[in-house]
Design a protein around this nucleic acid. Structure first.
Lengths: 110, 110
DNA sequence: TATTTTTTACCATTATAATGTCCATATGTA
DNA sequence: TACATATGGACATTATAATGGTAAAAAATA
């Protein structure tokens, strides 16, 4: 009796795209699935699931493989990522640390 | 005795950025952590891990929460994601379905 | 065509992520 | 200040992702 979780189609499509991109980059580099899974220290089964875009994979493993084949996440290199992190951190600091209770269902759908 | 997996700093930074972005968007929308975790049908603990950018979270859950707070992944809306998927699929189809064995360690580092 | 290697599928086992609860602290508001 | 709620940390339990093996089909090469 599985939990049967439901994902937004946007989530599914985004995960699928990342998987396909990984597969394309891998083939472009002429690296076999097993070769790449070895480099990433994951099993062939897991890499296949990642390339299929399955939503149940760990984000760290997916990003790691993407990194290995040279995919840029957020269209940024490492330095840019780090800088962006600091910027977002600063923006968070400007907002209240705690959210005030909202009036009921003002926006049940959003 | 944990497996002690190692992640590229790029992977860690990217995961961290996505988590911070989620947190920022959530606060911007004045949604409490519990409120958002309820909407995403996940526990508060998991959402806290996601916002902390922990690499061990499921990509589907992370993307789902990101979607809920309105973050655009790959800077694309749903239609664009779908179109991109098809494009990548087509590009994959142009490459050989199977990788030919490479000469040994031509590129051990890449 | 025969041979080799890649890819895909399935599955039981193992490792670990997700959960839910409790408690403490911080925060914002009346 | 006092109150109500949000946030954070820690933890045992449960659910499930990752693994590693086998086998078969597909694909590339000689």
């Amino acid at each position: 009796m599985k939990k049967q979780r439901v994902y937004a189609r946007y989530t599914i499509e985004a995960s699928l795209l990342l998987g396909k991109l990984i597969r394309w980059h891998r083939k472009k580099l002429k690296i076999s699935l097993e070769n790449l899974s070895d480099r990433a220290c994951i099993s062939r089964t897991t890499l296949r699931k990642i390339e299929r875009g399955e939503v149940t994979c760990e984000i760290g493993l997916v990003f790691e493989v993407a990194t290995l084949v040279g995919i840029k996440l957020f269209e940024a290199d490492y330095g840019t990522l780090k800088a962006q992190n600091e910027r977002v951190e600063d923006k968070i600091a400007l907002l209240p640390k705690s959210i005030q209770p909202q009036e009921k269902d003002l926006e049940d759908d959003f």
